[in-house]
Simulated assay, not measured.
Amino acid sequence: MMAAERGAAANTLSAYRRDLCGAQETIGPLAEAAREDVARLAAAWAALAPSSAARKASALRQFYGFLVDEGERGDDPSAALPRPRARRPLPRLLGHDDIAALFTRAEEEAAGNAREAVRLLALLELLYGSGLRATELVSLPFSAVPRDAPFLTVTGKGGQQRMVPVSNRARAALSRWIALRGGAEAVGGRFLFPSTGRDGHLTRVRLFQLLRALALRAGIAPERISPHVLRHAFATHLLEGGADLRVLQTLLGHADIATTQIYTHVDSARLVALVNARHPLGQARGAQARAALAAAPPGV
C-alpha cells in the first residue's frame, strides 16, 4: 500500500520495514498483538530520542490503521503507543564564508582538470546551486543534463518529478565533467555520475565521504558538512535573499509547505541575533553587563 498507493520512496519503505520488524521482535507478531502488548513498547523505546520514538510509533499507527481498513482487525491497539513530543531541530547551517571556502578549494583542485576533482566540483555546484537531495543527485540519469533550457528534471521522493534551475556556474562545471566522463556511450552511461569500478551510480555514502574530505582540506570541521547541510544552505541563503516560500517549496520538492517553513525559523533566529548584536539597546545592555562583571569582586 505504501509503495503502490502513496508512492513512498525506497528509503521510506526500508525505514518502515525496520521499525515494524523491530517492534515485532519486542512484542511478537504485530497483527495479533493486544493493546497490552503494544503498551510495552513505551518501555522498550525509553532510551530513544523523542524523534526516533515518534517515528516508530507513527509507523505502527499506520500499520494498524491499514489492518483495520482491510478488515484484518476489528480493533486498533495503537492508542496504547507513546506520544513523545518531538521538536523538529533547526537545520545545521553553513555561513557564506564557509561556502566560499568550500568552493575556493574545489575550484583550485579542479584547475588541473583531474577527473575526480572536476566531478566533485560539479557535485558541489548542484548540491548548493540547485538544492538537490543526495539520492536525487547521485541517481541523476545522463538524459537529465540540460541542453537548451537551464533546468534539470529531477525525480524526488515518491517518484514525483520537478524541474530545478541550473546556474551558469553549474552548467559550466557539468560541461567540464561530461568532457572528461564521456557521453552516454561511456561506462555507466545511464547515469550522470557513474560509480567507479562497477555498474551503477555514485553512492550516497561515497558522496558524503567526498564532501567531508573536501571540508577538511578547506579548513572546515568535517562534521559540519553533509549533502543535506548544503541543501539547507541553498534554502536558507535563498530565503535570506528574498525568495518566496512557495517558490522555495517547489524548488526543494516538499509535498507540504510546513516542511519548508522550518527555514523561516532559521531566518528568524538570524534576525534576532542581528537585533541583539546591532540594536543600540542590545549593545547598551551588553556593555552594562560587561561593566558589572568587571566591577564584581574576585570569585563572584
Rank of each mutant, 00 (worst) to 15 (best):
A186R: 13
P165L: 12
T12R: 07
R17A: 15
P280L: 06
L60M: 05
A170Y: 05
L274C: 09
D97Y: 00
L238C: 09
G241W: 03
L214Y: 04
A34F: 01
L81Q: 03
A47R: 11
L13I: 15
A39P: 09
G65F: 07
A49K: 14
A221V: 08
L20R: 10
G158M: 07
L41R: 11
M163N: 06
R61S: 12
E107M: 05
L81V: 02
V266W: 05
F208Y: 15
M163E: 14
L251R: 08
V300K: 05
L174D: 05
A59H: 03
V166L: 08
A295E: 13
A8K: 02
Q283T: 00
E25T: 03
R231T: 08
R61E: 09
P298A: 15
R83K: 15
A33G: 12
P29W: 11
R85Y: 01
A10T: 01
H96V: 14
R217D: 12
S51P: 01
K56M: 14
P91E: 13
Y16C: 07
S143E: 15
A43S: 14
A243E: 12
E70K: 09
L60C: 06
A49R: 13
E136W: 03
P77D: 00
A79I: 11
N11L: 09
R181S: 13
A15E: 04
L239P: 10
A4W: 07
A243L: 07
A80C: 14
G74P: 01
A144T: 02
G188D: 05
L81G: 07
E223Y: 01
F234S: 02
R17K: 11
R176Q: 13
L248M: 06
H232P: 11
G286F: 00
G282S: 10
A9K: 07
E107N: 00
L281G: 02
S143L: 14
A34V: 01
S139V: 01
E223N: 05
R115W: 09
G188V: 08
T259P: 02
E108N: 10
R285E: 13
S14F: 00
H96G: 11
A59G: 12
L102W: 04
L140E: 10
I99Y: 02
R290H: 05
L248A: 04
A258G: 15
A273Q: 14
D244E: 07
Q283A: 05
R83Q: 12
F66K: 00
Q161M: 15
D98T: 12
R119N: 04
L137F: 07
R169M: 07
A277C: 00
E25N: 10
A79P: 00
F66E: 07
R181W: 13
Q24L: 00
R231F: 09
A23T: 09
G286N: 13
R40P: 02
A79C: 12
T236Q: 01
P89T: 06
A4S: 15
S226E: 02
L93I: 03
A31T: 06
A173T: 07
A255L: 08
L202V: 09
A49F: 02
P84I: 03
P227L: 09
Y16E: 04
C21S: 13
A243R: 03
Q261M: 11
A49C: 03
R176C: 01
A235M: 11
A80W: 08
R278Q: 11
